[in-house]
Simulated scan of single mutants.
Amino acid sequence: MTNPFEDPDAQYYALINDQDQYSLWPAAIEVPAGWTVAHGPTDRQSCVDHIEVHWTDMRPAR
């Protein structure tokens, strides 16, 4: 079985939480509580690119 977080053929979301932290998330899996979709669904690389551009500080916002 393929790891759903590394499947190059799957669709993904770039998620964001209330601390302005991002996560790459497979679109086939329900978005967890506390997270919202910031980008997607789209290909994995597009989501990774979105996260790299928008998440410039790894520290929580608060």
Rank of each mutant, 00 (worst) to 15 (best):
M1P: 12
T2Y: 07
N3V: 07
N3D: 15
P4R: 05
P4A: 00
P4I: 02
P4W: 03
P4F: 08
F5D: 06
F5M: 06
F5N: 07
F5S: 01
F5H: 15
F5R: 07
E6P: 00
D7Y: 02
D7Q: 02
D7N: 15
P8H: 01
D9F: 11
A10H: 08
A10L: 06
Q11F: 15
Q11W: 12
Q11P: 01
Y13W: 09
Y13N: 03
A14Q: 13
I16V: 15
D18M: 07
D18C: 07
D18H: 14
D18N: 15
D18T: 09
D18I: 05
Q19D: 09
D20M: 13
Y22W: 08
Y22L: 01
S23P: 00
S23W: 14
L24E: 04
W25V: 00
W25T: 05
W25R: 03
P26H: 08
P26G: 09
A27L: 09
I29K: 06
E30I: 12
E30F: 06
V31Q: 08
P32S: 03
P32T: 11
A33L: 08
A33D: 14
A33W: 04
T36M: 11
T36K: 15
T36G: 03
V37N: 04
V37I: 15
A38M: 04
A38W: 08
A38E: 00
A38Q: 03
H39K: 15
H39D: 11
H39M: 07
G40I: 00
G40S: 05
G40T: 02
P41W: 03
D43Q: 11
R44V: 04
Q45L: 10
Q45V: 06
Q45D: 11
C47Y: 09
C47W: 04
V48F: 09
V48E: 14
D49W: 03
H50R: 04
I51R: 03
I51G: 03
E52H: 13
V53W: 07
H54R: 13
H54S: 07
T56V: 11
T56M: 08
D57M: 12
D57S: 06
D57C: 12
M58N: 05
R59L: 12
P60M: 01
P60K: 11
A61N: 10
R62T: 08
R62H: 10
R62W: 09
R62Q: 13
